[in-house]
Design a protein around this nucleic acid. Structure first.
Lengths: 143, 143
DNA sequence: GTCTCTGCAAACCTTTTGCACCCAA
DNA sequence: TTGGGTGCAAAAGGTTTGCAGAGAC
């Protein structure tokens, strides 16, 4: 059973209907590497399910976030990005000059002392870690 | 020389004029503990500098971010938060159910192997680290 | 057949921008 | 004096919502 089917199965079990649009959205999320925003996802979904409306994209992304299937985050550029949690997450180095992002292997979450969170009576479910600075090119051209 | 004066001095040296509105914005940022969004900052600034316009808040926040005086970040609730970098930064535990945020002492940035960033030819200037999950109250009431 | 989901269009909310006037240096 | 900064008003851009009809189960 592939990733898409597994997710559809999960949703079915929670009483969520499997529409053509919904299936396309999940397939598109599984197809891409890494993150995507609603606009780009909309374009991709249109190819699989022509006529799909923008609001359907948003409604489903919200549902998938609620269902803990999708992670939603922000790279300080006025839009949200989404990715399947099952894809395994990664973090980013984002250039504050040109805006380009590259992936970072390192994840700090495994280093945090879980004792701290326990003491604060907080049950973590996800996290984001983003580094901002200057990329190779912009570092060279920095005024 | 206090924090506000120090910042004003820095700005002056960069040829930025010190207006009443600008001074009030910096004072308000220095007054608060932690982060604030543009709406809340606007309300605070109005008390010190009545008549200040919303666009002035945004224009100055953008300038302060450019000047590396203010950090801008996002807690996944459709608005940006701002804080003075000189306040020393902290991270947050944010509840995905009730939306409340509490501060976290731990900072992962010191643990990242700077060698990784050097190898990627990236010069870091700032970072965000946010943990999402369930707070004490919502953990108990989770369905 | 029922009830969730979708398309459509309009609203919403935060943030940005153009322009004329104002004021800090 | 003068050019950067502000107020005002309008626009932009991303996201959300109400409603009536469509379609999954």
């Amino acid at each position: 059973m592939d990733k898409t089917e597994a997710i559809c199965e999960t949703l079915k079990n929670k009483g969520i209907r499997l529409t053509k649009q919904r299936k396309s959205i999940i397939e598109c999320l599984a197809d891409i590497e890494g993150h995507i925003n609603a606009q780009e996802l909309f374009q991709k979904v249109l190819k699989k399910a022509p006529g799909t409306n923008f609001s359907t994209i948003y409604r489903n992304l919200e549902m998938l976030v609620d269902m803990d299937v999708v992670r939603k985050f922000n790279l300080n550029d006025n839009t949200y990005y989404y990715e399947l949690k099952s894809m395994g997450h990664h973090h980013h180095l984002t250039c504050i000059k040109c805006g380009k992002s590259v992936e970072l292997e390192f994840c700090p979450f495994k280093d945090i002392d879980k004792e701290i969170l326990n003491n604060m009576d907080f049950q973590p479910s996800d996290h984001i870690f983003e580094i901002y600075g200057y990329c190779k090119d912009c570092k060279a051209n920095k005024k």
